[in-house]
């Protein structure tokens, strides 16, 4: 029995060595394994970094959704949510977390760790890096510059600009180009069209916004279309157009032609608690926006 086993083994040795000779088999060089191992680690790290970039874009998106103004721009809150959620980036996070898992699992000792631990570590690393990326303005860059090149994806800023390019609905956004002595101003909307904005209904708070911000959101009423290319708009509320987490590499802010210091307060300026004119009564979210503004004013007065 022992002899039989011995002869089997010897035969196996002979056959194996014969194949090594005839098929010219030799040990694969060490560097091949080194490269493979490093490639898995490399792809793992790249996946975590891409996941981090996607998380930065998600944070940027949520920070810049116009939650407060949904009454002015959308029919209801769910429409705002549905049209704003960062599907592309959530998809990217899911896919790249999967790729990170696959690559980590194929490193030399990757199998020793559980699925949950690898996923948790990968997502945690992406989240921490994502927060860091966001803090440096990379979320904006990813969403606008990279996301903007992907078909079917609209960056949150594109979405917001589009929401504030609905003058017939009473929502207009853009950049203040020129302020006259009366406080009326010229606005270049996001679609490039210029608007003469009547400021007679604005309160000191609205003017404060104008003084401090070159880009604004206006809730108001459009005048009937005139033949000229410049539209006319009656402003009821002005809110600042702020981009939270702005990328330093993003497109430069448009130059403001008029200094904020040139804004002149009218002698007959409306008291902050005074009701606005009847023109503004037609603005759909008037009551809601008035309420938001009054709460803010009351708080300001109390602190004074």
């Amino acid at each position: 029995m022992e002899n039989k086993k011995q002869s089997h083994t010897e035969s196996l040795v002979t056959k194996t060595f014969s194949r090594i000779e005839t098929e010219h088999i030799s040990p694969r060089p060490k560097w091949e394994f080194w490269v493979t191992e490093k490639a898995f680690w490399g792809f793992f790290c790249i996946s975590v970094l891409i996941g981090a970039a996607a998380i930065a874009a998600v944070i940027f998106t949520f920070q810049n959704i116009g939650w407060k103004f949904y009454l002015a721009t959308e029919n209801d809150f769910s429409t705002l949510l549905f049209t704003s959620l960062p599907y592309l980036w959530v998809g990217a996070i899911t896919i790249f977390t999967g790729i990170a898992y696959y690559n980590f699992r194929h490193t030399k000792r990757g199998y020793r760790h559980s699925l949950i631990l690898i996923l948790f570590s990968s997502i945690t690393a992406s989240t921490l890096l994502g927060i860091l990326f966001y803090a440096f303005g990379f979320g904006d860059f990813v969403d606008e510059e990279i996301g903007g090149r992907i078909p079917f994806h609209r960056s949150i800023m594109m979405e917001e600009r589009s929401r504030w390019s609905q003058p017939l609905r009473g929502a207009l956004g853009g950049e203040v180009l020129y302020l006259d002595e009366r406080g009326d101003f010229t606005l270049r909307a996001f679609d490039g069209k210029e608007w003469l904005v009547d400021s007679s209904d604005l309160t000191e708070d609205d003017r404060e916004v104008l003084r401090n911000h070159s880009q604004v959101r206006i809730v108001g009423v459009p005048f009937a279309e005139s033949a000229s290319s410049t539209g006319k708009f009656h402003a009821c509320f002005i809110f600042s157009w702020e981009v939270v987490g702005r990328s330093p590499w993003g497109p430069p802010a448009l130059l403001v032609a008029t200094s904020a210091a040139r804004i002149v307060s009218r002698d007959n300026e409306r008291n902050i608690f005074e009701m606005r004119s009847n023109k503004c009564r037609g603005v759909r979210p008037y009551d809601a926006l008035q309420k938001v503004r009054n709460i803010k004013q009351t708080t300001t007065h109390e602190t004074q």
Binding site: K15, T16, R19, P27, R28
Partner: peptide
């Protein structure tokens, strides 16, 4: 036997992968 041959050939080929 066939399996054993394959296994030893693979082992030989991948000797440098052994840690």
């Amino acid at each position: 036997e066939d399996l054993l041959q394959e296994v030893f050939l693979k082992t030989y080929q991948n000797l440098n992968a052994f840690d």
